[in-house]
Amino acid sequence: MIAWMEQHGTVLQLLISFATLLVWIFYAQLLFQSYRRARRPKIVINQLLDHAQTARFLISNMSQEAIHIETVLLCIDSGNDRVCQVITDAEPGEGSDARNEDGEHHGTDGSRALSERLDDFTLQGPLPPGKCIELGSANRLLARVRRQIARTSDDNEQKFPGRDRDCRIEIIVIGVYSSEKGVIGASRAFVYDREFRLRPEEIKTTQHTGFFARREMGRLHSQYI
C-alpha cells in the first residue's frame, strides 16, 4: 500500500488539491449567498385586522438598510379592465391628524396644516429597517380610487368593478435601495370578492429585484411619477 502511494504520489497530490479547491469553492459560495441574502432588499406587504373591507394594509421594510419609498400604486383588475392609481400622497384633508377614529374629516386652518408632519400626508420617504407604515383600510383605498377614476374617466362603471363580481387588488411599492442600481419594487395581490371579503392571492410578497423586474418597476415609476 505504501509502495503504491509512493508510486502514485503525484496523482494523489493532485486529487487532494482538487478536492480541497472544491471545498473552498463550496464554502465561498455559501458565504457569497449569505452576503447577498443579507444585502438584498425585502419589502413585505401584509393584510391585517380581519378579512372584511375594513382590513388594513401594512408595508414593512425587512431589509438590512433603509428603503426610500418613491411610489405606491393600487391596481384593480376585474378581468376585463385593469386600472392603476397612485396612492403615495394623501388626498386633501386626509392627513392622519385631520381624521378622528371614525374616519370623519374636520377642517384645518392654515397654521395647523403647516404644523402637521410631512409623513401624515405622504408615504414617500425613507423607511428604516424593521419599520412599517400603514396604507389604510381597503374600503377607504377603493373609494379613493373610485373618486380618482371618476375625475379622469367618463366610463367609471366599466373600469371600476361592481358588486356582482370578484376583483383582484394589487399593491405595488416602488423604492430605492442603497445597494441596488435604479429602483426596486415589491407587490402583492389580494382577492376582493362580491361578499366584501378580502384574502391574499399568494402567501408571500413578490420581490422585484432582478434586472428585468427592476426595468419594469422603472417603467411604472416613470409612468406614474
Rank of each mutant, 00 (worst) to 15 (best):
T54D: 06
D50Q: 12
V11S: 00
E91W: 12
I67N: 02
P41G: 02
S60H: 08
L31Y: 13
G93S: 05
A52H: 08
G103N: 08
G103M: 11
L22M: 09
I25S: 02
S60Y: 11
I67L: 14
S34D: 05
I67Y: 04
G9D: 05
L22Y: 04
A52L: 07
A55H: 03
I25V: 13
Y35K: 14
S34Q: 13
A52C: 04
P41T: 07
A90H: 09
V23A: 07
D89P: 00
D89R: 04
N80F: 06
I25M: 08
V86C: 11
L21K: 04
N80A: 03
G93R: 10
A19L: 15
I87R: 07
V86Q: 11
E94K: 15
G93V: 13
D102Y: 14
I76P: 00
I43N: 04
R40A: 04
R39H: 08
F32L: 15
E101T: 09
Q29C: 07
T88K: 09
Y27R: 13
F57V: 08
S63V: 00
E94I: 04
F18I: 14
G103H: 12
K42D: 01
R40E: 06
A28P: 03
A28K: 13
A98H: 09
F18A: 10
E70L: 11
L21C: 04
E65I: 08
Y35N: 10
I59T: 05
A98Y: 06
T20H: 03
H51A: 02
N100E: 09
S34G: 03
F26C: 06
G9I: 13
Y35T: 11
D81M: 09
F26D: 06
Y35W: 15
Q29W: 14
V83A: 01
I25C: 03
Q33I: 14
A55E: 01
G95T: 11
V83K: 09
L48R: 13
A98R: 15
F32Q: 13
P92R: 14
N46C: 03
T71Y: 07
L22A: 04
I69Y: 03
F18R: 05
L22G: 01
D50A: 12
I59Q: 05
V23Y: 08
A66F: 09
D97P: 00
G93D: 10
L49Y: 09
Q64E: 10
Q64D: 06
I87V: 15
F32C: 02
E70T: 08
G79F: 08
I59H: 06
L30D: 02
F32M: 12
A55D: 01
L30W: 14
Q85A: 08
A55I: 01
R36D: 00
D50I: 11
R36E: 01
S96G: 02
T54K: 08
V83R: 11
A90E: 11
G95V: 04
Q29F: 12
